[in-house]
Design a protein around this nucleic acid. Structure first.
Length: 402
RNA sequence: GGAGAGGUGCCGGAGUGGACAAUCGGAGCAGACUGUAAAUCUGCCGCCUGAAGGCUACGAAGGUUCGAAUCCUUCCCUCUCCA
């Protein structure tokens, strides 16, 4: 075990951390020299890991680097219930096959960040498969409805007259029981997980285990700048997004989000971040440049330095200088055709319908070789090799067939 | 078992016989501007048609009507409360 310095501790317990229960105890445990069992659960009802999850996964890796062990729990049972955390609607239940497939996809991404060698994967079904009604009753009898209604999400929904499925009440119990089974020392989660993690603590205590410490991390705001990052809202940057896309999505975040992203998603040193923050506030540095730095960091982390540079270059060329990208799909035009431009670009998938294509023409959003198209025309009249630009970043190259 | 609320476009959510392809907000797209694919402003935002126009659409199926998202009937589904 590595001995912790003050700066190690600061990085570990301050940056990108929302709350620690109980911090003093956690510090004692970290200094005890014993490898800790870090619990991280996930719900395989979704498959894509995005930057919102990365905040926590990076933290896990930091702990691993200090010699601790991650216990990754595949929530194949809780996934069938659907966790209501943070949202006010229940999720659909999944079939066993879907869960299995999702879990694999998830893990492939998970281990891009977390060290696989220092991780133990456990499936909930390993213990819940054998659970009988008697066990369920024993587990549920330890809590009261009032305790559960204390959870903010439930309280709100109840007050608003929105439904709460009974199975949802089971969710925290199952998650908490996981902690008992794997004898977790620390559970990790977003701030929306407080309640569930606390149930784990209580259950552990009831069976005579030392209650786990709870490590809560802030929820990352999505690219829309308003709501938390989530796939269903479409405001996410996925860890498997190709370099150009990852770079581009990052460049589209609000200026206000640059600093939080740097703090939560990169290893850029605190001093540097503070410097950026101050300079931006004074207007002495262009936020765009800081954002580029952020985008570059992310692409480097998830791909590599070379891809990051290429993505940066691509961005500068196509977005800033509005240059035509290198690889443009071809639009094959049959000889003697009298098809219209609007229908051809629709066929090529650049627009959803001819109506949309026409609208874009009206909006001066379609260009051929840099000149705005004023009205729909026959594709046959367009020269071979012409570049058709639709909107900001959709292109086609005309290739006439003989 | 009883009482009640509701199912509308990608999402949220108005509309309760004609003026409804359907207010508004969000998302998305575009244009302008810019410091960026930020922010802001403006416009567009079912499909077909060059267009006049047509078609499809408000849980489903029928019906009333010159005309229905709106009224009636049946059915399906969701939720809340009381017991």
């Amino acid at each position: 075990m590595k001995k912790l310095s003050d700066s190690d501790l600061k990085k570990l317990l301050r940056r990108g951390v929302s709350q620690i229960i109980n911090e003093d105890e956690l510090v004692r445990m970290l200094n005890s020299g014993r490898p800790l069992r870090l619990k991280q659960g996930f719900d395989p009802s979704f498959t894509d890991i995005h930057m919102g999850h990365v905040v926590g996964l990076r933290k896990l890796r930091q702990f691993q680097e200090l010699g601790h062990k991650v216990i990754l729990i595949v929530g194949d049972w809780t996934a069938r219930i659907g966790d209501p955390s943070g949202r006010s609607a229940t999720r659909p239940m999944l079939t066993a096959e879907q869960v299995k497939f999702n879990a694999q996809t998830y893990m492939d991404q998970f281990f891009r960040i977390v060290d696989k060698e220092k991780t133990e994967v456990r499936w909930q079904s390993g213990w819940f498969e054998k659970f009988g009604l008697e066990d369920v009753i024993r587990l549920t009898s330890k809590f009261t409805v009032a305790q559960f209604l204390a959870r903010e999400d439930f309280a709100k929904r109840y007050a608003a007259g929105h439904p709460i499925a009974i199975t949802e009440l089971l969710y925290p119990l199952l998650q908490g029981y996981d902690s008992v089974v794997i004898e977790a020392d620390v559970e990790f989660g977003g701030t929306d997980q407080v309640f569930n993690c606390m149930v784990g603590r209580e259950l552990q205590e009831m069976v005579g285990q030392k209650p786990q410490q709870v490590f809560l991390m802030p929820l990352l705001v999505g690219t829309d700048g308003v709501q938390k990052m989530s796939k269903s809202l479409g405001n996410y940057i996925g860890v498997t997004d190709p370099p150009q896309e990852m770079y581009g999505k990052t460049m589209s975040i609000n200026d206000e989000m640059i600093i939080p992203y740097l703090e939560l998603l990169t290893d850029v040193p605190d001093e540097e971040i503070e410097h950026y923050s101050a300079r931006m506030a004074e207007g002495k540095i262009n936020p765009m440049d800081v954002k580029k730095r952020l985008a570059r960091e992310l692409v480097t982390d998830f791909w590599n330095r070379k891809s990051a540079e290429e993505a940066a270059e691509h961005f500068a060329r196509t977005v800033q200088d509005k240059e035509v990208p290198e690889d443009i799909p071809e639009l094959r035009v049959a000889a003697g055709t009298n098809a219209m431009l609007s229908s051809e670009i629709t066929r090529a998938g650049l627009t959803k319908s001819r109506a949309e294509a026409r609208r874009l023409i009206d909006q001066n959003a379609i260009e051929i070789n840099g000149k705005a198209v004023k009205e729909d025309l026959e594709i046959g009249k367009v020269d071979d090799g012409s570049i058709i630009k639709v909107g900001k970043r959709r292109y086609l190259k005309v290739v006439r067939e003989k």
